[in-house]
């Protein structure tokens, strides 16, 4: 039971990093929060801009396209995109920052850590949970 979630072997993480060309850091340097919400800046149902390129001049990888597709109607968090694409969070952070630089997504940051959510919002959460 102790081994299921813990893996000393770095093997499986190596291939996904090929997709980010070995980059493990995000351009702006700031680490995207796990629950930062990503929204695609392309019209609903619209195809990917075929000529979209990343700031370095490279084209988009299929995984960039998948991120855009997933968050084109409903915003998805960094954590959700990672599970949806079945990729480690670090890789997804890099892919999202590529899209951010290319102006293809916007990212909304969660409430700053130092600040508790508003009491009305907490009441809404309670009501929402009770309605589950």
């Amino acid at each position: 039971m102790t081994q299921g979630w813990f893996d000393e072997d770095a093997g499986p993480v190596v291939r996904p990093y090929a997709m980010t060309r070995g980059r493990t850091r995000v351009a702006g340097g700031e680490r995207l929060d796990l629950i930062a919400l990503v929204t695609a800046l392309i019209g609903g149902g619209q195809e990917l801009p075929p000529d979209a390129t990343l700031p370095g001049g490279q084209g988009l990888a299929p995984e960039h396209g998948e991120i855009l597709y997933r968050c084109r109607r409903v915003s998805e968090s960094v954590a959700e995109l990672a599970t949806g694409l079945d990729l480690p969070v670090g890789v997804v952070r890099v892919l999202i920052s590529d899209l951010l630089e290319a102006g293809l997504v916007r990212v909304s940051h969660p409430i700053p850590a130092a600040q508790l959510p508003d009491e009305n919002i907490l009441r809404e959460v309670i009501d929402g949970l009770r309605a589950l």
Partner: peptide
């Protein structure tokens, strides 16, 4: 405003 997701982004809590 044509963007389907023009509504304000939801707030994420955890």
């Amino acid at each position: 405003s044509d963007i389907a997701t023009a509504a304000p982004d939801p707030l994420a809590l955890k």
